[in-house]
Amino acid sequence: MRLIRSEFLKIRTTNVWWLFVLGTLGLWAISFFFNVLQAHFVLNPEGVPDDQAATFSAMAKPAALTAYLATSGQYFGLMFVMLLGILTVTNEFHHQTATTTFLATPHRTSVIIAKTVAAAIFGFLLWLLTTILSVVGTVIFLNIENAEAAFGDSAVIRSILLNLIAFALWGLIGVGFGVLIRSQIGATVTALILYLVGTIAVSIIVQLLYVWLEQEWIKQLQWVMPSIASSLLVSGVDLPDQPHYWVGGLVLLAWAAVTGVIGTLITRNRDIS
């Protein structure tokens, strides 16, 4: 607990936490705006192609639509949790405090666990903030559209709670990134490129391969990306051409386990000088 309190002290005494909160709020507003536009189109479909009719029909169900809007802050919120996880590690090497930290606590695994817990708790706070805003916004929007809000549905409750797990796991993934790439700039830039550009690139490549080879299994490869798996995890209901929501959870757990274990093993054996 002393180690965890120490990590929170490092976070609270810098400008990082409130800059990340402001960034999350701004990008949440943009995300929610576009999600509302899409939800409006789903509730008022006109000229929907036949091959997308089943998807639109499934999305229009109260549980699916409510879960979709109530988890609007996920994409960019997860990104900031990942970045904080990275900075909890790379700041130590950037400011040359890692030696002091590991001399004070020779058990390096305990240090990594403390950093992971701190990042996960920060993720919980971001999840709580974006969820409250999303729920309020969802209620207002659905009332305007004269649509039913299904917050009492078990699928919606499950999606919101699984979203919390996603925020916590991305804190672990961020710590793993920071350990693998100790350079603050290198780890941050690499993670952002993989998260933002990599997500789009994988989706495009998978779609091109599917058009070229016409094999259904190719479309499922995109769910291996943790950012795309996170959206699957909180989908609320199973949509056409998508795996079950729990597949996204398994993918995230695998990424978190691999980065966490590898990162911890490297930290225990790497020279910090």
Results as ranks from 00 to 15, higher is better:
I218N: 00
A98K: 05
T130G: 06
P49D: 08
H244T: 13
W127A: 07
G77N: 04
V21G: 02
T138P: 01
N143A: 07
F41Q: 14
V206S: 09
H244Y: 11
L69R: 03
I11N: 07
T188N: 11
E7F: 03
G26W: 06
T116M: 15
L213K: 10
D241H: 14
T97C: 05
Q52I: 12
A187F: 05
F167M: 09
I185N: 03
L164W: 00
I173C: 15
N35C: 00
L162P: 01
L3W: 03
V175C: 05
M59W: 02
A98C: 07
L161D: 01
I160R: 02
T99M: 13
E7A: 08
V251C: 12
L84H: 05
I173S: 06
L133D: 05
I140F: 02
M79H: 02
M82S: 11
I140L: 13
T71C: 13
I30Q: 11
K10A: 10
K115T: 08
E148P: 08
T259S: 15
N143M: 02
P62A: 06
N269G: 06
F76K: 03
N44L: 07
V237F: 04
A150W: 09
F80Y: 13
E148D: 09
L25N: 09
T131V: 09
R158G: 13
S154H: 09
R5Q: 14
Q207I: 13
T55M: 12
I181L: 12
F93P: 11
I173P: 08
A150Y: 05
A63V: 03
S6W: 10
L192W: 06
L233P: 04
V111K: 02
L65H: 05
I140H: 01
Q74M: 14
I204Y: 06
Y68C: 07
I11L: 15
V224G: 08
I218W: 00
I272K: 00
A168G: 03
I272A: 03
S6M: 14
L125W: 05
G263C: 08
A118I: 02
R268C: 06
G123F: 03
L233H: 04
F151N: 01
L65I: 04
I113R: 08
V156S: 03
H40E: 14
H107G: 01
I173Y: 08
A67C: 03
I200F: 15
S203Q: 13
V16P: 06
F80M: 13
A29G: 12
K10H: 11
L192G: 06
L265K: 14
T24V: 10
I11V: 15
I11K: 12
I30C: 13
P49M: 10
L3P: 00
G85Q: 02
L37E: 13
L164Y: 05
V48H: 04
T188A: 13
L43I: 01
L172F: 10
A120P: 04
I228D: 01
Q220F: 12
V156I: 08
Q220T: 12
V261M: 10
S183E: 00
H40M: 12
D51K: 09
G198H: 04
K61C: 00
T101P: 09
L253M: 15
V251I: 14
Q38N: 15
L78I: 09
G174W: 07
G73D: 06
G198I: 07
H107Y: 14
